[in-house]
Computed example of a mutant assay.
Amino acid sequence: MRESGVVVVTGASAGIGRAVAREYGRRGCRVALLARGRRGLDGAAEDVRLAGGTPLAVPVDVARSEEVFAAAQRVEDELGPIDVWVNDAFTSVFAPFHEIGPEEFRRVTEVTYLGFVHGTMAALRHMRPRDRGAIVQVGSALAYRGIPLQSAYCGAKHAIQGFHESLRCELLHERSGVRTTMVQLPAVNTPQFSWVRSRLRDHPQPVPPIFQPEVAARAIVHAGDHPRRREYWVGASTVKTLLANAVAPGLLDRYLASNGYAAQQNASVHDPHRADNLWAPADSDGYDYGAHGVFDARSRPRSAQLWPSQHHAALAAGVLAACGALGARRLLRSR
């Protein structure tokens, strides 16, 4: 994407979306920030402005399609044609499935899955007539592997993965200039663990290893620049999870049954800003959560697996070249 292009980021008020908005701001982009919380949106707009970009904050509940469509039109009218649309907004409930009510499960699905569908529909309404643009779906290793205590979230991420694959095939069939890609993320230190609805005994935590949101943001921005790839995997832990699920799903089920509960809770964390954002934005009390969660001390600022994911073509060419050179040497020695 060109410098000063137009980008839309849903879930931009905090966490990964906030970090993505900053990253695009550093590029001098015009960044539309979509989220429910006014305080977080104001903070994100200031971040983009200080980074060198032009922000447009639009309060939106992505579960409401009409709000998303109206937001997309406003972005086109005020900032210009949308180049990249990043779907990131979500909510969740940390609890065993039998402790989640049907209205709670529905709400998680409407925000976390249908929010992506609505965002994609809105983006395509404007991108398809121009035959250009990129849509980035922010995914997770949990799009392939469900874990205990997160049934609603895992179900939504699995749904996004299937929806993404179907849409991508349709765009390829049309030979469309619009591209869609998905970034599968590892555990990330975001405020989500301080504001999702939880019925756990202790404070929720991401399953280690944990990465800082800037790692995810760099991967997402790169994916927006190179959307021809079907998906990007970020973090060696993501790759290991996907491989383990493919090779030995039954063993992984038993491992998670034994360890998945304790790995997602931390009794030593006491967060004074603990909230619940299922039905209303967490920043309704005026607190700006920012991009980082409460696990800074345990989070990694970079991912060794990110570079190979971004440069897979160069790596493949290097491997082929090395194999060719080795074959040539053996051929010369045999003569």
Rank of each mutant, 00 (worst) to 15 (best):
V75W: 05
Q205F: 01
V75P: 10
L50N: 06
V196T: 14
D83H: 11
P301G: 10
G224K: 13
V269M: 07
T91M: 05
L171C: 04
L320Q: 08
R179D: 08
P249R: 02
L171D: 02
H270R: 15
E103G: 00
G37V: 11
R2N: 09
L114Q: 05
H203M: 10
V183L: 06
A246N: 03
G224S: 05
P129S: 09
A152L: 01
H164R: 00
A152G: 14
R254L: 14
G101Y: 14
G235H: 10
L331I: 02
G11T: 01
D47A: 12
R335F: 13
V108C: 11
R18A: 04
A325W: 14
V117M: 08
H164Q: 00
R197E: 14
M121Q: 15
R179W: 14
T10R: 08
A313D: 07
A263Y: 13
L41V: 06
L56R: 08
L243P: 02
A246R: 14
L256A: 13
Y287Q: 06
I16H: 02
P281H: 05
D225F: 00
L185E: 11
E110F: 03
R229H: 09
V93T: 15
P227N: 03
N189P: 01
M1H: 13
R197A: 08
G80N: 12
H158S: 02
H222K: 02
V196D: 15
V68E: 01
A280W: 13
R107C: 05
R107V: 07
K157I: 02
V31L: 13
P102A: 07
F94A: 14
L243R: 12
A122L: 08
A316M: 04
A122F: 07
S334K: 13
D42E: 15
L331C: 04
H226M: 00
R36S: 09
Q184F: 10
G260A: 09
M121E: 15
A236I: 12
R49H: 07
A322D: 10
Q310T: 09
S268I: 05
E23K: 12
A263D: 15
P213G: 09
R106T: 15
E76Q: 08
E46A: 14
L251S: 15
S166A: 11
R30G: 03
S13P: 13
R18D: 03
G25L: 09
R26I: 00
P206Y: 04
D225M: 00
G133P: 03
E103N: 03
A32W: 12
